[in-house]
Amino acid sequence: MQGVLDKSILLSVQELTVNFRAEAIVARALEGVSYEVRQGETVCLVGESGCGKTVSALAILGLIPQPPGEIPGGRILFMGQNILELSEEELQNLRGNHIAMVFQEPMTSLNPVFTVGEQIGEAITAHQKVEGDELRERCIRLLKDVGIPSPAERLKDYPHQLSGGQRQRVMIAMALACSPQLVIADEPTTALDVTIQKQILDLFKTLKSKKGMSLLYITHDLNVVANIADRVYVMYAGIITEQGKKRDIFQNPCHPYTRGLIASLPARSKRGEALHSIPGTVPDPAYKPRGCPFHPRCTYAVKKCSEEFPEMLDCGDGHLSRCPVVLSSERKTNTIRTHEGPHYSDL
């Protein structure tokens, strides 16, 4: 087993395929997605909305509703164990205890009729036998960890009495309740104000270094990626289009989609210019184009792109990309040119 070979690999998603089926129509949400998260590492999944990021996260927790969802292929190895083969009880033991998740909408992700204390306490008692004052102490400590002032009083509050940023902190506290090895954060800052976003991001960084957990961070925001990631996977229409270390992705993007994303970032060096945008939208997962799914929007596209599904190609040093056109045309001239996009320290 691969996972056993390399002890440092905590989570390894291999060739994961997820479909959503309604009658005869099949929406292929994920098509052979592979990525891995190592111990203590922060991995970012980047892509536009609707490209399958959230689905892959839900699959890790076994939270894909079946039906209409189905997982016809692939493996999700967590500490060498295939999550897809676990029973419902084993999954329960995994969720919150070893893998925890922070959702996008702190407004709706907390149950409005239970107090903050009840909801955090429940996350602990679901996996550990803790009671009474000890439980209370642990809840208070968790709230203090995530930077909520006067945590003892907040325990009795209902979610609607907290601000958006505080709610997200409560969500994070819930996720950390059992000190999981892996925390999945699904766009945790998207619904928040920009100033709060920065705070939450910093919170994630401190917590990660303090608790030594791994973080799988899902976002569409490259600024966030530049801030937090060790390694990056770029997703498009249910496939991984490019992967590599943060430096490689930002300084030497080898896929037109990544280039487009980076070019559409505002940056100091581009002041005064019109912002770049990628034409078109992400295809409907039930009606993906043949060949490379990105080719209708791609400025590099050649005829072959609409015919053949591109393979993952090595650009060196763990940097992989699914665009043969860019690789072949640029390797021929033998200058892997630096993209004129912003240097990531710019961001």
Partner: peptide, 20 residues
């Protein structure tokens, strides 16, 4: 590169893949 781009313009029907 330029010729490639022209060829790309030859299949715009890909945009309308979702049956209307």
């Amino acid at each position: 590169m330029n010729t490639d781009k022209k060829e790309f313009a030859a299949f715009p029907e890909e945009e309308a893949l979702v049956p209307s």
